Computed example of a mutant assay.
Amino acid sequence: MSELKNLLEKTLHVEIPLTREIGISVISASTQLVELAAPLSPNINHKCTAFGGSLYAVAVLAGWSMVFARLHAAGIHAHIVIQDAQIEYLLPVVETISARCELAEDDEFARCLKLFERKGRGRIALAVEIVTQQGVAVKFSGNYVIHN
């Protein structure tokens, strides 16, 4: 297991206790891709599908984790918060919740860091998908803020 993957999972479980309760695990973590998973059983609803709130939480946390990975790589310690978000529930999830956040562009995060250095706050928009065997089940987009 990579150092970043271990650090991210430990940080999630210590700083955001909900992640332990819903069974979040870090599948992969880099500055380009973060993948989180959560088992269906603690996140199930009355329809035997994943609860919408759990899907939202896993998506928010995948984006949060990407910001964490980028800050860690840059050697920066800052607070990370979600400012606002939109979510589309496209398909029911009847298996392990698998969320992916990709950030191939370095320019967007560089702008975020410049704002952070100048004003003590930076913002970045991130997209997350929850994918099942049937296809993309959830599309999430959120604005994350970093601050001192």
Score class of each variant (00 low, 15 high):
Leu61Asn: 00
Ala57Asn: 12
Leu71Lys: 05
Asp84Phe: 05
Val94His: 07
Cys48Ile: 06
Ile97Val: 12
Leu40Cys: 09
Glu35Lys: 03
Thr19Asp: 05
Lys5Phe: 01
Glu105Gly: 12
Asn6Ser: 06
Leu8Tyr: 00
Ala57Arg: 01
Lys5Met: 09
Val136Trp: 15
Ile80Asp: 04
Ile97Leu: 13
Leu90Gln: 06
Ile76Arg: 13
Glu21Asp: 15
Phe51Val: 08
Val138Tyr: 01
Val94Thr: 10
His46Pro: 00
Leu8Asp: 00
Ile82Lys: 08
Gly122Thr: 03
His147Ala: 09
Asn6Gly: 03
Ile80Tyr: 11
Pro17Ala: 05
Lys119Leu: 07
Gln86His: 14
Ile130Arg: 00
Ser28Tyr: 02
Gly122Met: 05
Pro39Ala: 08
Glu102Asp: 15
Leu71Gly: 00
Glu88Phe: 15
Leu40Arg: 10
Gly142His: 09
Cys112Ala: 12
Lys119Cys: 05
Ala69Ser: 14
Ala50Asp: 02
Ile82Trp: 03
Asn148Cys: 04
Ser141Arg: 05
Ser98Phe: 05
Glu15Gly: 12
Gly75Arg: 07
Val136Asn: 15
Gly23Cys: 12
Val131Lys: 14
His147Gln: 09
Arg123Ser: 04
Ala37Asn: 06
Val58Glu: 04
Ser25Met: 12
Glu108Pro: 02
Leu40Lys: 10
Gln32Glu: 12
Cys112Arg: 04
Gly53Phe: 15
Arg123Val: 02
Gly23His: 04
Thr132Leu: 15
Glu102Leu: 10
Val145Met: 10
Glu95Arg: 10
